[in-house]
């Protein structure tokens, strides 16, 4: 039963931090230098490197048993996985953003996170259309495409530079360690140990 684990990790900054957190918890996944490779075989596990929005799906379907991904992406994907550890890094806020001082009605909201935006608006009783954009969503607000945007805010410098402000925080986000539901049950000894170590690492 001690088969190596398959791990889904997102490209970019989180990749390195996730690797470090997993290594500190005893799971060493040395990645090859060639960063064009999509699949890396290490003695302790196979790493699949992908866009962050794809991580939840790979883990839900069990192609990867475990993964690391931001809570923002996880909320948008609304998948059936376990998220037993808040790894605390890659902290940001999912926020409602408008041009500074704007108080008019919200009729249209742009977001890279259409499900999150729709759920938030419904919860607030705001009847607005959601426009799904691929990136730089703040531009929608500045250009008049939308009255507001729902997006992640890290430092707030992009907002300041474009004369935008955070009107409301939808939720706080950070990187999460996620586990396929069946894998946690069928390989509980191995995964419980990893979860315990990851948790004591963030204490």
């Amino acid at each position: 039963m001690n088969k190596p684990l398959t791990v889904a990790l997102p490209k970019g900054r989180v990749l390195e931090q996730a690797q470090r957190a997993l290594a500190d918890a005893g799971l060493n996944l040395r990645l090859d230098v060639d960063d064009r490779k999509l699949r890396h075989e290490a003695p302790e596990g196979t790493v699949l490197v992908m866009r962050n929005h794809d991580v939840p799906k790979y883990v839900e379907l069990g192609v990867a048993e475990i993964g690391v991904v931001g809570k923002d992406v996880l909320e948008e994907a609304a998948v059936n996985v376990y998220e037993p550890v808040d790894l605390r890094f890659a902290a940001c806020r999912m926020s409602l953003i408008r041009p500074a001082g704007e108080t008019g009605p919200i009729r249209r909201v742009a977001s890279k996170y259409p499900h999150v935006a729709a759920r938030y608006l419904a919860g607030q009783g705001i009847d607005a259309d959601v426009v799904h954009l691929a990136g730089n969503v703040e531009l929608a607000c500045i250009s008049g495409l939308s009255d507001a945007v729902v997006d992640v805010v890290e430092t707030g410098s992009t907002l300041k530079a474009n004369d935008l402000e955070e009107v409301d925080v939808v939720f706080e986000s950070s990187a999460r360690f996620i586990v396929n539901r069946a894998a946690l049950k069928l390989r509980h000894a191995r995964l419980k140990d990893l979860i315990d170590r990851l948790r004591s690492g963030v204490q």
Binding site: L61, G62, N180, R181, A182, A183, L186
Partner: peptide, 9 residues
């Protein structure tokens, strides 16, 4: 019910 090596119940 699960079965080994299948990711869904």
């Amino acid at each position: 019910a699960y079965t080994p090596d299948f990711g869904q119940p």
